[in-house]
Design a protein around this nucleic acid. Sequence first.
RNA 1: GGCUCAGUGGUGGAAUUGGCAUACACGCGACACUUAAAAUGUCGUGUCCUUACGGACUUGUGGGUUCGACUCCCACCUGAGCCACCA
Length: 908
Amino acid sequence: MQKYNPQEIENKWQKIWKKSGIYKTKDLAEKPKFYALDMFPYPSGEGLHVGHTKGYTATDAVSRMKMMQGFNILHPMGWDAFGLPAENYAIKNKIHPRISTEKNIAVFKKQLEKIGFIYDWDREINTTDPEFYKWTQWIFLKMFEKGLAYESDEPVNWCPSCKTVLANEDLENGACERCSTQVVQKKMKQWVLKMTVYADRLLYDLDKKDLEWEELIKEQQRNWIGRSEGAVVKFKVQISKFKVEVQSLKLENNYIEVFTTRLDTIFGCAYCVVAPEHLLVENYKLQITNYKEVEKYIIQARNKTEMERTALAKEKTGVELKGIKAINPFTNEEVSVWVADYVLGSYGTGAVMAVPAHDERDFEFAKKYDLPIKKSIIPPALSEMPQSVNDVLASSGGHLDNSIRIKINCFTEDGELINSGKYTGLISRKAREEMIKWLEEKKIGKRKVNYKMRDWVFSRQRYWGEPFPLVFCPACKKQAESLKFKVKSEKLAENFKNTTNYKLQTTNYSLGEILNPGWIAVSGKDLPVRLPDVESYEPTGTGESPLANIKEWVNVKCPKCGGAAKRETNTMPQWAGSSWYYLRYIDPKNKKVLVDKDKEKSWMPVDLYVGGAEHATRHLLYARFWHKFLYDIGVVSVREPFKKLYHVGLILAPDGRKMSKRWGNVINPDDVIREFGADSFRLYEMFMGPFSQAVSWNTKGAVGMRRFLERIWQLNVKCQMSNVNSNPNDKIQNSNKLERLVHQTIKKVTEDIEEFKFNTAISALMILANEFERQEKTPKDYYEKFLIILAPFAPHIAEELWSFFAKAADDKSPENKNKYQESIFEQSWPKYDPRLVSEEEIELVIQINGKVKDRIKAAADISEDEAKKLALESEKIKKAIDGKGVKKVIFVKGRIINLVIKFIKFIK
RNA sequence: GGCUCAGUGGUGGAAUUGGCAUACACGCGACACUUAAAAUGUCGUGUCCUUACGGACUUGUGGGUUCGACUCCCACCUGAGCCACCA
């Protein structure tokens, strides 16, 4: 037998697998299905690194095991190929992104093949392929039709360096996630998807039993959605008596609406604060006596970046709006009104009631501007606390030390109401209920649920993305506007499910077209709207997309009225294609529908999804949102797309830093494979540590795996030479013990792969291999089973060694010959015998007072009495007891006997 | 500041329900093979005391519960990730 030469056999088997096609997925098969999905990569110019392949190796191992367990596998791969890097590369090198992307894909694909993954390449998809993005556009059109996509004119995040708007999900500490440039708020017309309509379902479905996601990811999504229940309260605006001449204000502007989750503290409200963006200042321009000063503050605040506004240790600033007051509806007290940038314009109503006694931020602000601090809640247990925080401050000489801080902070919890009129004495929760009831009766407030999550800003001013299937028609605009008043837009849009037939009943405009007058959907039969070629990909920087310059593309006829119209020239964000791609693998070549209904039903949901945790609040949220929408319109049959989700832990460079071209510490899988072989590489990636944990790459790590495989190679010779099978009558030494170990290993490896504990699965394989080596003769059938359970991790060597049996079996029985001429992956996964999993003989541990003193060999089912007898016979134990009486005996069957000789206070 | 998770040899890490701490591997040391080196093999390898036999200590720190704690409880320290003036 020749030496183990991984490169040679890996190459060989990769070719054979490709040719034989045993991994090709069969649709609507009899077997149970298993859909194993990897987050598809962005084909960058740098190629794959070892971080990508860690997740892929895991799904590949699971898929191979499932295949041998008799499942029909869907294990596809594709390319998330729209996005900025390709476009920036194009700008720099004057190469069309399609060309460079194609080249990168070829490199990626080759790299993946070298590792021996069993993707069904017949199902390969590419988000930039018009046949794919046709359906991305189609989903957008459906959302538009249902009123879920709308054109907004609100301020949005603008990245001055990438020259495009960004969604909230694309920010990292107020900076562009991609280039770290501080974003600025800019008022621009943008397409926005009403993700907030789905907020509650996105939140509550996380806790459904059949969603087997790690808590880490679920928690991130919960935080991101940021649901809080509270109330909106109207504070009447009162104008100072000196300046009553202007009364031209509309009635609805006569209130400040504040959002609060702590309505129970409203009797402690000392003032109101509005965000700099709030319309109040503009509306009361003439009544605010210090308008100049206020305006100056607002301009300053607007010029601050998000970072500066939310900086950690920043001192709060603000200006009082002199000349106006607000009336607390519960107390009828006048309170002052302030503008301050610690209140966010984009959350809630952009205005808050300030309760300095029970909110740390308000407290800080009130102290600085000397505003009243009035308590209205006490913790039930601390009712003897001073009545006012001012008392606390007074008694400490105004100095705020930590202990006082703690006392004040503890007031912010729910408690018992004081100084709160008829609500005094109620506990917080009860008080909130009563107060909301009162507000609703008086029509000066209502219950309100708020979300941190925003609607998804969905357009980008860049070239390399999906074009919107929309045109703007001035003639239709007038028509639609005349219809718009008939539609109570918000209501209809939120209940869009009931509006499906709206179009048929009233007009030939869809809800989206009425809500966004002038915007007309491209007809479904005209999809895809192809991305045109351009001379220059350079973003204009003006907020217009590079597509706007292509007159012959932009100018079209309106599909509704035939009049002159213009295409939407923004493109979709990179996340569009990945929000539904997993459905297309099921039916990648279907020209008629996004996915065939029967096929969808047979494959969904995805059974296993693996990818980076960085996608927790973007891709995974977007995909769930789109999926729920597709469920609502009947395209898919399940509510959640991904049943089981594991996140892959980061692989850090040997120096402990993140792998990056910048540091020059990137490990390329090709190099590792060249040195050690793909099987060693795969094993090492799985052996490094717990799957979800970040670990540093150790350059020498794969050495141990290579040694392991070399030993297995040698074992093969030993088995072939001996050519014995296990048999109760065989006189192989310790065969019973070895058999038990084989069964234990099968159990361990099977369960560990299922639970993504690959490191311990591999360690179990090593233990068995070590034991085989110690045997004089290793039975061939044990070795066969070992090869099968090794195969998910090291498929090439397993297949090669399996094929040796074929040669050896040449002159044996015909059925054996057939078996060995099949691929190892056509064999069935071994089952373990539960009776053989437990040990027959154990080392019984003898403890004195819980400390190990001796170990004796004993039968696994030894009784307590017998164990005690044996224990007391031990010399070491006799010495340790030293004549003292045994007070108590604790016996754990099959494990331990503990003799207690010290004094025990209470014997139960 | 909030939430989530983690802290075990020189290194990556194991350890069912509270029941033998350090599995498996890397590294290191000694030896064998070799002219030599690499590769490979054998043995050893938590720390301290002891020539040895053997003993003491040991899972971030301090306390608690228990016959018995890496595991449970309390307090603290350190690190990672996510969110962060979200009212």
